[in-house]
Nucleic acid binder design. Structure first.
Lengths: 238, 238
DNA sequence: CGGTCCGTTGTATCGGCGATATGAATGACT
DNA sequence: AGTCATTCATATCGCCGATACAACGGACCG
């Protein structure tokens, strides 16, 4: 039944369109079914219930989000990519406010992993920064900070789109977060004065290993090495 | 008609209680009316529609928020009050997730000014910091950054309460924002440059310990540490 | 003191919603 | 060709937000 998958896609697309058009950020299952010419039980067979449909819409929103990110993160400088990623996130929220809220605002009983996948995308971008020695803290901790701040300012902007200095506000918060997350200059000198240089070197090696596995080591050896590096860098958060 | 205002308060209280108990962060007007023994038209006369009721609940939530803030922001150090305000905001979100989302998540056509009043509270706290020369940027710009970041990490925490290092995450973002917002040391102090960094760090750690106890230390150890920090920061300058 | 008028309340109901039971229809497999 | 499982459409249920309407009650005025 390939047609089933096409029908799923059609209903998700219709739901997303109606969600973007709806002023109250909500849709009716009846309306979605009528838009694609099927009856309600079809929806409940394909998605379980309304929440299942919304989860599918949120996951589909991640697909477009990932495409937008993949289309623009191609610079050689990972730090520039990171800053551009913040602005791209804001642009996505501005262009799809209802979908954005569906993806990033807490919904009870939501099974959508859209936010986690965006988190993983951000972690990858931060690991690329760590590989060139520009990251000061663990990538996952940095991603938690940056994503939370980005979502916060984006929801703020959705709630009050009348503000004129929204870009400046966004950049002020962005720079504040990344000033604490990133190092000032390219770490040709890897050692910061107030930190253990051994620890910094270990962190950099771990980032490199996350980007590309070490060919010279067996998988078991790599796993043990990563555990050692975790202990050396004191990463409490998984 | 004083009874009208009492009825309003009763309905708001009932709505807030049912909102906190409801797992889907939603309430039914019928249920609220039954809880206080009135019929539905009464609700629509007092609040206009369901959104009016929710706006009233959000504004009432601000009252409790303001009481919580007024109860704890009484230290002499405005910077310590600011940091404590961040943690108090997180505690409010943790204890009232549904109410918090009602107050701070974007709701279409919402006329509640709860968020703006919280913003004003934050501006006032930042102005007090500026009064002692600790603020680097304009209070309103600083409040926009801090509130957006605080809401972002709070909503993140509501969505995934299973995280264990939530306090560390919150403090990381908090420190990142305020590091850009605040100056390192009192600007009125002429000898700012030759201030002992150890003393500054000790002062900062003492402020941290006043906000939240150190989990890694025993109570006796924390007490001894506080005495040491008092000696390190006490005499000498200001 | 009594009548009229206006605001308030309760009853009943409307239209829409999410979700589902149930019989008809379709297609595959034996 | 017949049987069975799957899928679909009709009809419906229960709940919700919101409202029309008439009965009730008190205030004001003659």
């Amino acid at each position: 039944m390939v047609e089933t998958e096409q029908l799923r896609a059609q209903m998700i697309e219709a739901a997303e369109g109606q969600l973007a058009a709806s002023p109250d950020f909500d849709i009716a299952t009846r309306s979605v079914c009528e838009a694609v010419g099927v009856t309600q039980p079809v929806l409940y067979r394909l998605f379980g219930d309304k929440r299942g449909l919304l989860d599918a819409v949120a996951d589909h929103g991640y697909e477009r989000y990932a495409q937008l990110k993949a289309a623009q993160e191609q610079t050689g400088d990972p730090v520039a990519d990171l800053l551009a990623g913040w602005d791209g996130h804001m642009a996505f929220a501005r262009d799809n406010p209802a979908l954005y809220q569906l993806m990033f605002a807490p919904r009870p009983w939501s099974h959508s992993r859209a936010r986690d996948r965006v988190f993983d995308l951000l972690v990858a971008a931060l690991v690329r920064c760590a590989a060139v020695g520009r990251l000061r803290i663990e990538p996952r901790a940095a991603a938690e900070m940056a994503l939370a701040a980005n979502v916060g300012i984006a929801l703020d902007h959705i709630a009050e789109p009348a503000r004129f200095d929204s870009v400046e506000r966004s950049h002020r918060l962005r720079d504040a977060v990344f000033a604490r997350v990133l190092t000032e200059s390219p770490a040709s000198d890897a050692a910061r004065d107030d930190e253990d240089p051994v620890r910094a070197a270990a962190r950099r090696l771990r980032a490199q290993l996350q980007l590309a596995a070490a060919d010279a080591l067996e998988p078991e050896e790599s796993a043990l090495l990563l555990r050692w590096l975790d202990r050396m860098t004191g990463s409490g958060s998984r």
